[in-house]
Amino acid sequence: MDRLDGRVAVVTGAGSGIGRVTARRLAAKGCDVALVDLRPDGLEETARLVRAEGRLASTHLADVSDAERMAALPEEVLALHDAVHVLVNNAGVTSVGPFADERLEDIRLLVDVNIWGVVHGCRTFLPVLREQEEAHIVNVSSIAGLLGLPHTATYALTKGAVKAFSEALRGELAGTTVGVSVIYPGTHRTAIAATARGSDGARVAKLSQGRLGVLMPPPSLVARRIVKAIEKDQARAVVGPDARVIDLASRIAPGRTRLIGRVTGRLSGH
């Protein structure tokens, strides 16, 4: 996009973490922001931060996996902002542990939020985005979308789908006014680990709130790369030292994850 100043952005999962700092950074670039999340408290705090940048913020309670609610969202946003130029599909949940131990309800939740949330966002807002002189979609994947990491099989399933979908959508929209970027964050200091599902979820949550969490890079690093991807119409952005290592490994030895599986299995006691 040639400019962000005066544009309107929609950010899902805006109540915390990557979504919050991305909304704030977009506001610093001159965007008004429609904030979407399930948690009202988190939304209001993000809205306060956006308004502190001197920009308009609206809050929208929505479950991105709910097709009916998402179908109603564009009209709701347009009534307040008159346009939408940027869509950041960031909302997501994770699960950690052996696939054999995964509960079906957790698998369905990850598919509903991580895959259907992205599909609903793109499908409902794309007609609005195509009406603008320039627009952009950002879909947030993960290092697990680059290489299927053991003990995150369900998460990898969903984030790999986001990767393939985003690449296909970018190709379909080539030559239009709508760009598409997919972002691959590594481990960052966000709430997603603290709410991880799966048999190892509680252990990972505890680690993320201790010394390991302190060592993780802040989500602002991801937010900067998201905004750069929008401005430069970049197809992809790999963010964080661990993500760069995984990206390289996926190119040099695609599909060879047995060694990683042995290491993560020992760490988790499996």
Rank of each mutant, 00 (worst) to 15 (best):
R197D: 01
D247T: 00
G240Q: 12
I260F: 11
G261T: 01
L221Q: 11
T195D: 09
A235P: 13
R189N: 08
I192W: 04
P254G: 10
A237I: 02
S250Y: 06
P219W: 09
V239S: 10
A249I: 01
G198E: 05
G201C: 09
S199C: 09
I226K: 10
V238D: 13
R244I: 00
Q209M: 08
K206S: 15
R244T: 00
R224M: 08
A202I: 00
A253V: 00
R197C: 02
V204A: 11
G213K: 02
V239C: 10
V214L: 07
A223N: 13
P218Q: 14
V227W: 04
R203Q: 14
Q209D: 06
V222N: 01
D242Y: 08
R262M: 15
A196T: 00
L212S: 07
A229F: 01
A237V: 07
P217S: 04
A196S: 12
L207M: 11
D233N: 15
V227Q: 03
G261A: 12
L267G: 15
G198A: 10
D242I: 03
I192M: 08
T190Y: 08
A202T: 00
V222G: 03
P241R: 10
A205M: 09
R224D: 13
G265S: 09
R236H: 04
G261F: 04
L207H: 05
R251N: 13
S208V: 05
G213W: 02
L215I: 07
R197F: 06
P217L: 03
A193G: 07
P241S: 09
P218L: 11
T264H: 10
I260Q: 06
A229I: 00
L248S: 09
L212P: 05
T264Y: 15
R197E: 02
V204H: 08
G261W: 03
D200P: 02
I260G: 02
Q234Y: 14
S250I: 00
R244S: 02
Q209V: 00
S220P: 06
Q234F: 15
S250L: 07
V222K: 01
A253M: 04
L212E: 05
P217H: 02
S199M: 05
Q209R: 11
G240N: 14
V263M: 15
P241A: 11
R262K: 13
A223E: 13
G198Q: 06
V245Y: 04
R224S: 15
T195G: 09
A223L: 14
A253I: 00
A229T: 00
R211E: 15
A196M: 05
S208K: 14
S208M: 15
R236Q: 05
L248F: 15
M216C: 13
E231F: 08
A202K: 06
L207F: 05
V204Y: 07
G198R: 11
R256Y: 03
I230Y: 01
R189A: 05
V263I: 15
